[in-house]
Design a protein around this nucleic acid. Structure first.
Length: 501
RNA sequence: CGGGAUGUAGCUCAGCUUGGCUAGAGCGCUUGGUUUGGGACCAAGAAGUCGCAGGUUCGAAUCCUGUCAUCCCGACCA
């Protein structure tokens, strides 16, 4: 007897376990033999490639170019920026040798000690900064606006697939500018780019804001982030954009001679999103039957699942399915070809149908002898689980619209959820009552609490005690006079507080 | 890096307390058959150096030591 839902346990039964099961059921990734590292499987990789492709286009549009910098960074580079060291030293993989030799017991052991150990990049500010320093002499050499797609390593103690792995894929943009204003504008532009990507492609509403001091990127003057709310009402930082001021320019020696003949340090920025976005996608839209994908990022938009009893029926049905595929692929959705697959694997219909459900394909088209005879198709919509029979002509004519509808519905549902679970609080007790301080994966409370705050150490202490975090000070929040809910002091800054990943 | 738990077939686990014949189950897989419009059924079959390395013993999945890995809870983080 099959369970009522494709995923066990359900979200309400055990959210953390549900997440892992969705990843598994959708064949997105699996844990690897290497501690903390994951194998990204074809379906997950196709999803990341779509994210990559769309974002890359956005970066090009905003005047960035791709380049590639080394995986290894000399320790001395990391050391040059004091805060940066504090932030990353604890989680660096270190390369100390450059060859292996066989010992007397026949085991391979490291040999050839390096004079200066190398770290595997946890991020590339330092090595890119050192390179920029060579490239920049004159104000005419600025700005430099470069992005790289790469893997990075942060030796995490508690990995979770896509959300926190020792190695992950990301893009990191690094720019250098002649003026502070220009660098600040760049920081803002990229934050907005991430917001647009989250909203328009991931169908994921986010809160854009500046990180308070305690959450700032090590070495940055200001850090901005997009914060998304997962279905367990915890916050997930989905993207960051940093204004680095002249900190790294000074550390790495990025200086130039300006129009006024004075030698000046450049102003730099960095910004990135990672494979964590896949985790965000999963926890924003998926349900107890598995993955739900927004059409704009789905590796396949439509899965045609043929139904037949025997070889005689199969021939006609497959032919029919192929014809529908051709017709659909001639249609355009958001300026692209509709991506269609036919699932005619040697499996029972039910198995193939559930497979597509669990993989989150937005539309499933069932065709069997009945449909062939009537010239129709049975269309199943992943997000609503609704089934509808229509003529092939109708299907072809409405496919793009249906995908648009799904994309819109996913966003609307997520936005409604975000709004329904956001409140404004006036006191610390209200904050605690709303968020709760038990963190046992309970779904009972949580959400985004907006409160006045003044960013003092005692706030962080209190938050830590209750396992809560300050996510950001939203940019669209008007500055209004109020009292800090922690210290009682006057402040005009409002922050978003939440449990977080 | 601290506290706790767990490593036995591809997966989930039983067996370990009290050492003893050829190490088990369910799911999955293979083959044959019956089925077939939402997760089938019957039958047969393949599959495990019991995480790894030592030790105790006539004998170790079982006891001891070490080690590695995974999960949960803390500290840390995109």
């Amino acid at each position: 007897m099959a369970p009522k839902t494709a995923i066990t346990p359900t979200r309400s039964e055990n959210y953390a376990e549900w997440y892992q099961q969705v990843v598994k059921a959708a064949d997105l990734a699996e844990v690897s033999p290497v501690r903390g590292c994951m194998v990204i499987k074809p379906w997950g990789c196709a999803l990341w490639e779509n994210i990559h492709r769309v974002l890359d286009g956005m970066f090009q549009e905003t005047g960035h170019e791709n380049a590639y910098f080394p995986l290894f960074i000399p320790i001395s580079f990391l050391q040059s920026e004091a805060d940066h060291v504090d932030g990353f030293a604890k989680e660096c993989a270190v390369v100390t040798h450059h060859r292996l030799t066989m010992n007397s017991e026949g085991k391979l052991v490291p040999d050839g000690l390096l004079e200066e150990p190398l770290i595997v990049r946890p991020t590339s500010e330092t090595i890119i900064g050192a390179t920029y320093a060579k490239w920049v002499q004159s104000y005419r050499d600025l700005p430099i606006k470069i992005n790289q797609w790469a893997n990075v390593v942060r030796w995490e103690m508690r990995p979770r697939v896509f959300l926190r792995t020792a190695e992950f894929l990301w893009q990191e943009g690094h720019t250098a500018h002649a003026t502070e204003a220009e660098a600040r504008e760049e920081t803002h532009t990229m934050l907005k780019t991430y917001e647009r990507f989250a909203r328009d492609y991931m169908a994921m509403p986010v809160v854009c804001g500046e990180k308070p001091s305690g959450e700032r990127f090590p070495g940055a003057v200001a850090t901005y982030s997009i914060e998304a709310m997962m279905q367990d009402r915890k916050a997930l930082q989905a993207g960051t954009s940093h204004f680095l001021g002249q900190n790294f320019a000074k550390a790495q020696g990025i200086k130039f001679q300006d129009r006024d003949t004075q030698e000046k340090f450049a102003w730099t920025t960095s910004w990135g999103v990672s494979t964590r976005l896949i985790g965000a996608l999963i926890m924003t839209h998926s349900d107890d039957n598995g993955l739900v994908l927004p059409p704009r990022l789905a590796p396949k938009h439509v899965a045609i699942v043929p139904i037949y009893k025997n070889d005689a029926e199969k021939e006609g049905v497959i032919q029919y399915a192929n014809r529908i595929r051709s017709l659909l692929m001639a249609e355009r959705y958001e300026g692209e070809t509709i991506r269609v697959t036919i699932d005619d694997r040697d499996m029972r219909f039910g198995d193939r149908a559930w497979y597509q459900v669990k993989h989150g394909v937005p539309l499933r088209v069932e065709v069997g002898p009945k449909e062939v005879e009537a010239g129709t198709a049975t269309v199943f919509r992943r997000n609503t689980l609704a089934k509808e029979n229509m003529t092939v002509e109708q299907l072809v004519a409405t496919a793009a619209t249906q995908l648009q509808t799904i994309q819109r519905e996913l966003f609307e549902t997520a936005e409604k959820f975000l709004k329904a679970n956001s409140v404004r609080v006036q006191t610390r007790d209200e904050l605690l009552a709303f968020l709760g301080d038990s963190d046992e994966g309970s779904m009972e409370n949580g959400g985004f609490a907006y409160a006045h705050f003044c960013d003092k150490p005692e706030m962080y202490e209190w938050l830590k005690q209750h396992r809560l975090t300050v996510r950001c000070a939203p940019l669209d929040e008007p500055k209004t006079p109020g009292k800090c809910v922690f210290s009682g002091e006057d402040t005009d800054t409002v922050g978003v507080f939440a449990k977080s990943y």
